[in-house]
Design a protein around this nucleic acid. Structure first.
Lengths: 245, 245
DNA sequence: AGTCGCTTGTGAAGGCGCGCACAAAGTTGC
DNA sequence: GCAACTTTGTGCGCGCCTTCACAAGCGACT
């Protein structure tokens, strides 16, 4: 519909107009895979190769990449180094994003120590909790501070991304503190729907939901298998469990 | 792609015909919120209430619930207890799903100790790793065993769901072992696309991608903010102002 | 130079999910 | 018993995302 009128210009830093949300997530996947290709010494990659490696339809991949500009060479493929650079620029990875993590429980502790973040340009620079036993200790060299210090610390350290790994009841309060401190992007691991102003972006990762979706599929497959068995044995499905109905 | 065409043979308690994936995920959210409502002593809930509490459009919520049958009372709402029961049945939570977790690193350790699983009917019954320092220790009372024991242990304990929290390079091998052991549903935390047979269901949770998507939004907001600032200062973006005035 | 083969970029069609709006159905008050 | 109100269940249009198919562009080979 809305067509960028002069997309071809060297374009300064204007990333682009409205990349579909789904595409952005895949761009990150491409970027990681491209890093692996680069380590293997590949100079160029075709859309078919990269698509196969990331489990995506080749046409979809090309369309995704077309959102950030035309950096492919017809008949050859994409130059790995250049594409990596463009992807990093589009995803905002050329500036380091300072991350604050609130809630140093089981999950939070793991996130604080997770190497996948810092190594990829997301240094966790602040940790918060309310537990007096946790406040004051260091994890990976980062001091755990009290939640009430969020406003001050986040501003001081230029935090741009907040991760919430608290119990559900505490999540909204923590979220409000982060938003007040100027954080505009939040990754929420708590099983709660956060209320935020319109300009704040929230992504939710809900491990319990993921498992329950899988459980649903287990049940489906189980039913399918049972129907197969029943077809052989000639018995109706119901009444076996006794737990329900 | 394989669709059971004859699923609708008898409508009694036949779970359903093909609930959209997106709806299944929301059903799990509804279920959790309904649990909270039940604890507060609510007998019935209207779609508007539940929708507001879960941050969903009321019509969408009703449509989601209609996939599992008509358990609402017009003019009144949904009976909480009955709806919880139906949701649990649909999501396969009436049987316990035995979960195996492979990869006891930072994240795996947290997942092993995460209370949100066992309490919700997903007991983690097996832990695996390859690190000799980890094999043999107990976490939350569960013994960590060597990855090579996966085939035996998973069959013995009736594991239905596997969680992979290994480094990316090890993920595919572990996945193959799980699939061979009869596991049909896998939750993958490793940054890798898993190749699996068609009947195996894989869900991927990619923390690095989540952060990068947020970084993208940070960048976008940053650009927007910069444009605002420019507008306030009265400087045109492209530097052509002098010509016009 | 010209042709051939390969790969990108994209127009267009199809599918899916979202949300509006309304009919159906049940409850409450009189 | 009837009317008015409340809330569910769903048909339908709309927009986004996916996918196909093909023209355009680039390099290699002769």
């Amino acid at each position: 519909m809305t067509k960028p009128p002069h997309a071809g210009s060297e374009g300064a830093s204007a990333p682009l107009r409205s990349i579909p949300e789904a595409s952005v997530a895949r761009l990150a996947v491409y970027l990681r895979k491209l890093g692996e290709f680069a380590e293997e010494g590949a100079d160029t990659v075709s859309s078919d190769e990269l698509a196969a490696a990331t489990g995506v339809n080749p046409a979809k991949l090309r369309k995704d990449l077309s959102y950030i500009g035309s950096y492919g060479i017809r008949g050859v493929g994409y130059e790995v180094a250049a594409l990596v650079h463009q992807l990093e620029r589009t995803l905002g990875l050329n500036h380091r994003q300072s991350v604050a993590l609130v809630g140093i429980g089981n999950l939070g502790h793991a996130l604080a120590g997770y190497g996948g973040f810092g190594g990829r340009g997301f240094p966790v620079t602040a940790l918060f909790d309310v537990d007096p036993d946790l406040v004051g200790i260091h994890i990976n060299g980062i001091l755990v501070e009290h939640v009430r210090a969020i406003p001050q610390v986040c501003v001081d350290r230029g935090v741009t991304i907040g991760m919430i790994a608290t119990p559900g009841q505490a999540a909204q309060g923590v979220c409000d503190l982060l938003v007040d401190a100027g954080v505009r992007c939040i990754l929420n691991f708590a099983p709660t729907v956060l209320q935020v102003p319109g300009e704040v972006e929230v992504r939710k990762v809900d491990l319990a939901v993921e498992l329950q979706v899988l459980a649903f599929h287990v049940a489906r497959k189980h039913v399918a298998a049972a129907e197969q068995t029943v077809a052989v044995n000639g018995h109706p499905v119901n009444g076996a469990g006794g737990l329900l109905s």
